[in-house]
């Protein structure tokens, strides 16, 4: 049994349900994210990971259920919460026609960063992209633009970060660099991260704890090692495939599920 986590809860969903045209993309999904913890959301395409994140960012309203960030109800305190949080995804972009430095300056000002130029330079150096400041954002490679997006996501020193498939479309080398940097900044600043990915390396290296979703429901949760131990598989990748196909983590349905 893992020791109960007594760190502050910075993000919480209680029975979060979201329907689209009568189909439940999320079905009574509950979880807690603690300060300084990296929680991975795993599941096949369509499992509901992005929907969960969109609800937690206030982009999509839940059909039912309650959401809290920093102990505050999300929808009443959306602006104050977003000031302390940030988000990055492989599927959004910063305006392609602006220079990288211009884009970052605009967002630094939006977030009210104290010394924007200095902050941007620091973060760009950390992500090893200082040379990109004068480049046109739309002409960056996938790896470069992912890292630029991450700079944007770190600009306001977020206490809470949501990353939706940050390593999608990256080559293994860049993906590895991105993971290491995320982990480093996360540890240094004690950030709580909600992290989705299809990449098991990501999950094993970055996440302290994992929740497997299947059709909007939690199938299992725990540390990556716990989950493999609970399952009849030998590695996380096989667990993933098993859940994606059958919605369960063990072969024999009569076998007791581990707590």
């Amino acid at each position: 049994m893992p020791a109960p986590d007594d760190r502050e809860i910075i993000l919480e969903a209680r029975d979060l349900t979201r329907e689209f045209d009568g189909v439940k993309a999320l079905d009574r999904f509950s979880f807690q994210l603690h300060r300084g913890e990296v929680l991975g959301l795993l599941g096949a395409n369509g499992a509901g990971k992005t929907t969960a994140m969109n609800c937690l960012l206030g982009l999509t309203l839940p059909t039912s259920g309650d959401l809290f960030a920093f102990g505050l109800p999300l929808h009443q305190h959306r602006i104050a919460i977003l000031q302390r949080a940030n988000f990055s995804s492989a599927y959004t972009a910063l305006p392609g026609n602006l220079l990288v430095g211009q884009n970052l300056l605009v967002f630094a000002k939006i977030y009210g960063v104290r010394d924007p130029k200095k902050k941007i330079a620091e973060l760009m150096e950390l992500l090893e992209i200082s040379h990109l400041a004068k480049r046109v954002t739309g002409q960056l490679s996938a790896g470069e633009s992912t890292r630029v997006n991450l700079v944007k996501a770190f600009l306001n020193d977020p206490e809470l970060l949501m990353l939706d498939e940050p390593t999608a479309s990256l080559d293994p080398d860049i993906a590895d660099k991105v993971r290491k940097v995320v982990r480093k900044v996360q540890r240094e600043r004690n950030i709580g991260i909600l992290y989705t990915s299809h990449n098991m390396r990501d999950i094993e290296e970055v996440c302290d704890r994992v929740i497997f979703l299947h059709k909007g429901k939690i199938v299992c949760e725990g540390t990556p090692t716990d989950i493999v131990a609970q399952s009849s598989s030998t590695n996380l990748e096989d667990v993933f495939i098993k859940i994606a196909r059958d919605g369960e983590i063990i072969d024999e349905p009569q076998k007791d599920k581990a707590p």
Binding site: L57, G58, L59, I79, A80, L82, Q83, A85, N86, F87, S89, T92, A93, L94, P95, G96, N97, F107, I110, Y111, K152
Partner: peptide
Amino acid sequence: LEDVWTRNLLNVFVAPVR
């Protein structure tokens, strides 16, 4: 539309912008 065309809208809506 500039924000739509440049796929920037989400960045703006997840920022503390009213």
